Simulated assay, not measured.
Amino acid sequence: MRWLHLRLRAPLASFGGEAIDARGVIRDFPAQSMLTGLFGNALGWTRSMRKEHQALQHRIVFGAAHEEDPGLRRMTDYQTAQIGKRDRAWTIRGVPAGRKGGPQTYQGSHQRWRDYHSDLRLTLVLRLDPGDDAPTLDDLGASLKRPARPLFIGRKPCLPAAQIFEAWIDEPDICAALRAALPEGRDYYALWPYSEGAAGADVTRFVTDERNWLSGLHGGARRICTGRLIGRDDG
């Protein structure tokens, strides 16, 4: 079975979770929706191509492993913004946003807290199911080598420090592909889909990491496994 091997390297990265009020939290691993958006950006897709994004998200099967302990490499960025009555902020909807309400809403500043992974080093293997539909795995690999637009790992300030495409791997299953992609000599904190088998998992649980690209909302759940995998270097 053929796998696309990616390496995510970045001074800062954000694998966004469920935001609560002004706190932008992160998860340990990328979301299904984040990878869909990453490939859509590399392919040059626009946000209006909702059906294409939805179909690609449904086909992605991926596993990932941290090469460093993610709990030791996190930081929180504290942000403030003073927004007056006539100030406008950019939005992804293309319509400027501003303050609404009485004079009391113009006092003080907006406060935000954004969590990040710092010095990210993540190995990821991926295939598409079904594999014959467009875009193919070869299309995704080619788009990462020569992306149509600048890529980022989560939020837009999170630029990769190196090319994301690493190699192609042939292995019978997702855990074998991850072991082949990781440096040998130690074990690594890893994630893979429960549908690919739970052997070797320390924990199985449900995550909500998909986006309904037709409505623009996040929802639904899938079952994942996390555990420790030992790297295997075949030279």
Rank of each mutant, 00 (worst) to 15 (best):
I224M: 09
M75F: 14
Y116A: 05
H66W: 12
G16V: 08
P150V: 00
G235W: 09
E171Y: 00
D119M: 00
E52M: 11
A55M: 10
S118T: 15
C225A: 08
L178Q: 06
A19G: 04
Q79S: 13
E196T: 14
G235T: 13
R74S: 05
G71P: 00
F206N: 13
H58K: 14
V95R: 11
A81D: 06
V207Y: 14
D115M: 11
W168S: 02
G98E: 04
G84T: 10
Y106P: 00
A19C: 11
G227R: 05
F29M: 12
R50P: 08
D28V: 02
Q111Y: 15
G154D: 04
G98C: 12
L159Q: 08
L229A: 04
A65K: 10
R127T: 11
A81R: 14
L159R: 15
H58S: 15
A167R: 13
Q82E: 11
I230G: 00
D234N: 14
A161G: 12
R205I: 00
E67P: 00
A198T: 15
L35F: 11
Q54K: 06
P160R: 05
S215G: 01
G141T: 01
L191V: 10
G220T: 09
L137A: 05
K156M: 01
G63L: 06
R50N: 09
G63R: 05
L140G: 03
L191A: 09
I164S: 06
G220M: 03
H66N: 04
G220A: 03
A198G: 07
E166Y: 02
A176P: 03
R155T: 03
A22W: 11
G102Y: 01
S33G: 04
R47G: 11
G44P: 12
G141R: 04
L38G: 09
N212D: 15
R211V: 13
G185D: 11
D129H: 01
Q107N: 10
G131P: 05
L137P: 02
E52Y: 06
L8H: 06
T76L: 12
P130W: 07
G154M: 02
R146W: 07
G71I: 00
P183M: 07
S14E: 12
A162L: 03
W213E: 11
Q54N: 04
R9L: 15
R222Y: 02
P150M: 01
D202P: 01
D187W: 11
W168P: 01
R112D: 14
R27P: 00
A64S: 12
K156D: 01
E68P: 00
I153D: 03
D170A: 10
D170W: 03
S215P: 01
L126E: 08
E52S: 13
Y106K: 11
W3C: 04
R223D: 01
H5N: 11
M34V: 01
L6H: 08
R47K: 12
L38T: 07
G24T: 07
F39T: 03
S14K: 12
H117N: 02
T80C: 08
R93M: 05
A180F: 01
I60H: 02
P157F: 02
G219L: 03
P147C: 06
R205Q: 10
G131W: 02
D187R: 14
L124E: 04
P130Q: 05
T204K: 10
E52R: 15
P103Y: 06
E18F: 07
G101Q: 08
